[in-house]
Simulated assay, not measured.
Amino acid sequence: MTHETYTLNLYLLRHGKAVEDFANDFDRPLTPRGREQAKEKGQLLKKIVRSLNLIVCSPSSRTRETLDYLNINHFQSRVYFFKELYLATSDDLIKSIQNFKNTNSMLIIGHNPALHCLSHLFLSSSYSSSENPTKLTSFPTAALAHFSLNIQNCHELNIRQSNLIAFYP
């Protein structure tokens, strides 16, 4: 059995600021500030990312709207909406990552607490607490984390070989 290893550039993006009081949480739209946050993160992504093969997004209104306002169509990424990303756990996010083999760059647009928990999982597995470069005490709206992950045998995510490249609150 061949043990192929490749690097995945994983970008985790929390949706922009959403309306607080709304009848149905799933349908909460972005506020004007949330739309601006998404536009700003889209500009940032255009500066820091050379290619983006895949976008995996929660189907909630605020995450879809965030994707629209990113305005990153020039990447010509494949886009998937997974209902499992709404109210997801960090384990659900890991499964989403593992669903795609040989993808070298992926953006996940989702929600807290899953994004924050997954970031902590990557950081705590990669560093001792004394050498952790970023504590990531919060994952605010429109926060973007860039991790470099080693993937083995197409579907095996080795979280011990994950590195935080940058965090943009």
Rank of each mutant, 00 (worst) to 15 (best):
H3Y: 12
E4D: 15
T5K: 14
L8G: 00
L8H: 01
N9D: 15
Y11H: 04
Y11L: 00
H15G: 00
G16F: 15
A18L: 03
E20Y: 06
E20P: 10
D21Q: 11
D21N: 13
D21C: 09
F22K: 03
F26M: 05
P32A: 08
R33C: 03
R35H: 09
K41C: 07
L44N: 07
K46P: 03
K46G: 01
K47D: 12
I48Y: 03
I48M: 00
I48N: 00
R50K: 13
R50G: 11
S51G: 10
N53E: 15
L54A: 01
I55V: 09
V56E: 02
C57I: 07
S58G: 00
P59L: 03
S61T: 15
S61G: 08
S61F: 14
S61M: 11
R64M: 13
T66A: 03
L67S: 04
L67R: 02
L70G: 01
S77T: 06
S77F: 08
V79G: 05
F82C: 02
K83S: 14
L85R: 04
D91T: 07
D92E: 15
L93G: 04
L93T: 02
L93V: 10
L93H: 09
I94W: 13
S105K: 05
I108M: 01
I108V: 10
G110K: 00
H111R: 07
N112H: 02
A114Q: 03
A114S: 05
A114I: 07
L115S: 01
H116F: 06
H116I: 04
H116P: 05
S119M: 05
S125K: 09
S125H: 14
S130C: 02
E131R: 12
N132D: 13
T134P: 08
L136I: 06
T137R: 14
P140M: 06
T141C: 07
A145L: 01
H146N: 04
H146L: 00
F147T: 11
S148H: 10
S148E: 03
L149E: 07
L149S: 02
N150Y: 11
N153E: 14
N153F: 11
N153G: 11
N153M: 12
C154M: 13
E156C: 15
L157P: 05
I159Y: 10
I159P: 04
L164F: 00
A166M: 08
Y168S: 02
